[in-house]
Each structure stands twice: as structure tokens, then as C-alpha cells.
Write a protein that binds this DNA or RNA. Structure first.
Lengths: 343, 343
DNA sequence: TCGTCCTGTGAGAGCGCTCTCTTGACAGGC
DNA sequence: GCCTGTCAAGAGAGCGCTCTCACAGGACGA
């Protein structure tokens, strides 16, 4: 019986002995080096199988100076805001893509300022081959700092500094598609419940709404616009205020599904029928949208794809450090359900 | 200027040279070995700071045979079922506890059977110092397999095999506390919407309900019991069925908040006032509960604490491999809001 | 026929660290 | 005075792997 890794690990040496070749040859086979003769290769492969050989990652890292792992940093506020299924879906996309190359995903969830410093130190030490950052608050210096140290970084959402690769969802176009759809189905008094304006997603979705209605220059407190905080209750209260201020509204574009569900409640309570009296379109296409009643039309974000694309960009950057930073904007798609049926 | 790790890393050797001591002494200082003289210690500490020395984890792992990382395995179905904030909160608890000891969290999210085999191989190879598993489907052989190989394992939720450490939430007692509260506030026709009975959480919550109503021996299709699938829509439909079958019901215990929100909708649509006509208590105390209207009483699960406790158990086990497996059952608490006000 | 190139393989150094073993210095007991 | 014990500190081996370099042997052009 072969002994397992940990105390009596199977080493290259043992595989080499069994296959009657040198350590170097075993290493070549294990790493897919093409310059190995057919017979040697087969002998090695047989020995690897027989001994259940698994390379020791630490030893490999020590000499290659790669860790074969990448860090994903998700700061505290993010998990709450995107409480929804953002977090797992994003990680799934990342995990997926890394698995293909047999890379590890090291998850870092700094809590509070002090912990962020700890994480920053850890990352700066170069313990991982690259770093994926999502939704940093405001003007976090971390990405620029890491990039400056030569550590590959890709940011999700809008980039905090120039010269850094990032992937974002086209929030503006997504909002625009929703509003355009409402307009094209005969709605004429289209209001919106926007997200916090200090968040790129909040600001961009409102911009898309404005742009499409052809009123770029209108002030924020426009009468047709209510800003809320991406919560269910916030959505409900915003809807109540809108109903009061714009009694003849016939459509709402809501910057998140959670808020949209709140809006649906407020509308129902006010005796407005959806979609007959008021059409509603949300954003995110979360599971909530499909199970809301009436079911909620929504702008779908490719979250997993965002994770995948960020990972691809990062690996690319790790392998070719001299390539210029790139950014990728992902398309959204409009998922139509009951809440936005034409009148 | 010191050069950063990666190409021109600062090594122990350089620190030793600067502090005018041997490599061994630097190592002792860095690892907190008490047998170092005061003057040597200070010289080393100064050199470490000056050079911004950070130990190379790979080199350390190679000789200590520890990876200083632990794996968290979250299989595909889990992320969907616990879509809610289970996932991030759990990871936060784990991350928290690991950070204290400067350990890494390696996240594994196998997707599908083939990928699970890959993950199992990875874990079996002993690349991490321990493994945390949550909610495996049915009779997964993985925990027993890993334990058999001498790899520390802690499972979240009910253990699939004897002899394995696990942490669970006291679902039964949680359900019981909710039902007891309803009974004590004068409710006499208390029905329940249960979760899937092939999931421990689903079964245990129903058992707690039964137990408390003193009807242990009643069959599942009891008339007062509806089983649903933990989804919003499932909760709504279950409530509709219950209203039809038990028109005089005056309280519902619902095995998840998401289903409870569905139930609230169904009740509202049927013209029943909550809590005047019908009291409702959910389970999970998710953010939904606080923002539902009326706000939803719910059984709070200590999710972060579960992550923390699992991690503690694991580290303990990793350090003292010969200790017998332990299990910890965490208490729930009842959070009372509007939906269960006394009549 | 000889040198040159190419291909497959082996020898061996060395990545940065920990840890055992040894040494040196000094105090105390006989 | 010597021996033993204690404590700080250094020397050096070696963890398992990759990778450079050297070399053997065959193919090929001159």
C-alpha cells in the first residue's frame, strides 16, 4: 500500500525509482513537457498511478515562485449589500474558471479597517499569484498599491484608479433597455426608484434611465426620481412617495429586485394593479423576481460571467505582465415577465 | 529600498546578516521561540522591520509539513438552497476565526459529480491542514473517507457517519420555542409549513413542531402540516392549501423566512389580518424578516457562530489528532416582531 | 568519415525555511 | 580546581521539487 501524503508522502524520488528513470524525467511527465520518449512516459505514468503520487505543492511553489493560488477579496459591506445571490454566484464563476487550471481560490473577507490592513499586507507579500477585488468602498488605495508592487489585480465594478484592469456590467445600458421597453409598450409616465448615488451601480442605472427618457440635464430630485438604499423597505417607502407625488404614473423602473418587491407591495396596498395600471421592471434578475407575484420583469446581470471574466483577465495578466490593462463591460439582458405586460 | 517578495524576495538569510545573528536565531524570533536573548531579539526585530521581511510560506510548509490553510467545501446545491445570507455569514464566521491564527481559507465549490471527485482527490492529497464541509447531500462518503485518511474534518449539519465531529443548530428546539410561544399567547389552531423532509433541517423543525403540540405520533399528512420546498412561491401555495383545509387556523409556524413571506402574501390575499387573525413565525431570521410587512417574528440561527465553532473544532482536532470526535449543538433564539403579537 | 545538430535523459544545485545537534559561556557543587 | 547543568546561539542537514547544464547517441549535411 502506498502511504499518504502528510507523514509518509509519496515523492518524486519514489516514483522515479519505480519507473526506473531519473527524478527529472518524472517531473517532465508530471508537468506535461513534450520532450520525453514514449516508453519513459508510459513507465512514469504507470508508477504515478500505482503509487497514487500527488505533487507536493509547497515544494513546487518554493522553486517556481508561484503559489498556484489567487486571492479573492470581499470586504464586509459587500456581503450585506449584495446579500442576494451575488456573492455565491460570483464565487462560483471564479471557482469554475480556476478549477480548469487547477488553481486554488483563497478567500479573504476583511472586517473593519484594521483587518483590511492585515489583508493588504498579506496580499502585498505576494503570497498569491494575483488578486481579485470586488466593490471596494470609494477610493480604496489597495488596487493601485498592489498594481504598483507588480501584483496582478483585477477589479469588479468601476475601477478606482486608472491603469487597472476591471470588469463591469453595463448598468447604464441595462437600465436603458428596461426604460426603452416601458416606453415602447405605451407607458408615458415612467418613474424610477434609484439606488444610492455614491455607488457606481446606483448612479449608472439612474443615468441610463435619464438618458433614455431624453432628459440628461434634469436635476436628481426630478420629481420622477426617488433614491433608496437597495432594501425592500426602502423600495416600498420610495414607491409610496412616488405615488403621492406622481399620482398618474404608469410605470416604474426599479434599480434592484429587492426594492422592486417592496414597490410591488406598496402598489398593491395603494390599489394599483400591476401590470394593468402600473408596469414594473427590476434589476438583477434575482430568484425573487421569478417568485414575486406578479412575477417581476428584470434586467439580468451575468454575475457568474463576471467572475469568470475577471479570472480570465487575471490569469492572462499573471502570465503576460507587460500587456496593457484591459477592461471588459458585460452585457445585460432584459427578462420579461408579468409585471411589465403591455396595457 | 527593500525588494519585494516574488522575484527579489527578502529572505531569512538577509535578515540574519543585517541583525548580525544566524538564520536560526531569526527563525526563532519570527516564530516566537522564548529561548532568545533580549539583545538578539531586538536586533532581529529591527532588521525585520527595516527590510519588511515576510516569511515565505512555501518554504515553511515544505519543512513543517503544514500548509497553514484549511479548506471549506460548499457543494453546488447548498448555495441555491441557502441562497439567503447563509453562505456569506457562514464564511464570515470561518474567515474570522482563521484570521486570528493567520490561516488561509481555501474555498472549494464543486459543481457536479465529476468535479466532486476532483475536489475529493485534492483534499485526500492532504494539501490543507483540515476540511470544513457543509450540507452534503444524503450519504456522502467524503467525510468518512477523509477522516479515514487522518485528515481533520468537521461537518456542518447532521453528520453523515459516526465518529466525525460536527456542529449543528438545534432546529428542533428552535421550532419548539416558536410553537410554544404561539400556544402561550392563546393560539389554538396552529398549523405549520414544513421544509423538505429529506433535509435534516426540514425534518427536525417539523419534529419540534409535533413534539411541542404533543402529537408525536401523528402522521405527516396531518391536515395541519404542509410540506414545501423552502421557496417563496412554495410557501405561498402551501399557505393557500392550509387555508382551504383548516379555515379556522389562527397561527402558522413556517420553517423558513422565505416561505413565511410567501405565506404572508397568501394570508393578505385571503383577507386574513396578521397578527390579529393569524400569527406567523418564520425561521432563519434573515434580513427579509425585519423588512417584511408586517415584520416577521423568526427563529434566529447563529450562522456566524456555526462557522466559528466549526473552525475551532477543526483547529483543535488538527492540533490534537487523538482527541475523540466532538459535536456541538448551537442554540437558536426567538426574535419577536409584529407578526406574532398576542391577539 | 567527421563534425554538427537535435532529442531524450540524468546529475546536481538550490529554492527559503525549520529543527536537531553542537558549541560556547557561565554558574554552582563537590 | 574540575565537572555538571543551563541557557543562548550557530552550523548544517534536508524538506520535495524544478530547472539548468551536461552528455549520450542517432540523424544528417559536408
Amino acid at each position: 500500500m502506498s502511504r499518504r501524503n502528510g507523514d509518509g508522502a509519496v515523492t518524486l524520488e519514489q516514483v522515479a525509482a519505480r519507473a526506473q528513470v531519473s527524478r527529472a524525467t518524472v517531473s517532465r511527465v508530471v508537468n506535461g513537457d513534450p520532450r520525453v520518449g514514449e516508453s519513459a512516459r508510459q513507465a512514469v505514468e504507470a508508477a504515478v498511478r500505482a503509487l497514487r503520487y500527488v505533487p507536493n505543492r509547497a515544494a513546487r511553489s518554493l522553486v517556481t515562485r508561484r503559489s498556484d493560488s489567487i486571492a479573492v477579496v470581499i470586504p464586509e459591506p459587500t456581503t450585506q449589500l449584495f446579500g442576494d445571490p451575488f456573492f455565491p454566484r460570483f464565487l462560483r464563476g471564479v471557482s469554475d474558471t480556476l478549477a480548469r487550471d487547477d488553481l486554488q481560490l483563497v478567500l479573504l473577507m476583511p472586517q473593519g479597517r484594521a483587518d483590511e490592513a492585515r489583508v493588504a499586507r498579506y496580499l502585498a507579500a505576494g503570497h498569491t499569484d494575483g488578486v481579485l477585488l470586488v466593490s471596494l468602498h470609494g477610493s480604496d488605495p489597495l488596487p493601485a498599491d498592489l498594481a504598483g508592487r507588480g501584483i496582478p489585480v483585477v477589479v469588479g465594478g468601476r475601477p478606482p484608479a486608472p491603469g487597472i484592469s476591471y470588469v463591469d456590467v453595463d448598468n447604464r445600458a441595462g437600465a436603458s433597455s428596461a426604460v426603452a421597453h416601458l416606453a415602447s409598450t405605451g407607458r408615458t409616465r415612467i418613474v424610477t426608484i434609484a439606488g444610492p448615488q455614491d455607488m457606481p451601480a446606483g448612479a449608472d442605472r439612474l443615468a441610463g434611465y435619464r438618458e433614455t427618457l431624453g432628459r440628461r440635464d434634469a436635476p436628481v430630485d426630478d420629481g420622477l426620481v426617488e433614491v433608496a438604499d437597495f432594501s425592500l423597505d426602502g423600495g416600498r417607502r420610495a414607491m409610496e412617495r412616488l405615488l403621492e407625488r406622481v399620482p398618474d404614473l404608469d410605470a416604474v423602473f426599479v434599480a434592484s429586485d429587492l426594492m422592486a418587491v417592496g414597490a410591488l407591495e406598496a402598489l398593491s396596498r395603494a390599489g394599483r394593479r400591476v401590470p394593468e395600471d402600473v408596469a414594473v421592471i427590476g434589476f438583477d434578475d434575482s430568484p425573487l423576481a421569478a417568485s414575486a407575484r406578479p412575477s417581476l420583469s428584470s434586467v439580468r446581470q451575468p454575475i457568474e460571467e463576471m467572475g469568470r471574466e475577471m479570472t480570465r483577465l487575471l490569469l492572462d495578466r499573471a502570465r503576460h505582465p507587460d500587456v496593457a490593462p484591459r477592461h471588459v463591460i458585460l452585457d445585460t439582458s432584459l427578462v420579461l415577465r408579468e409585471s411589465s405586460q403591455p396595457m
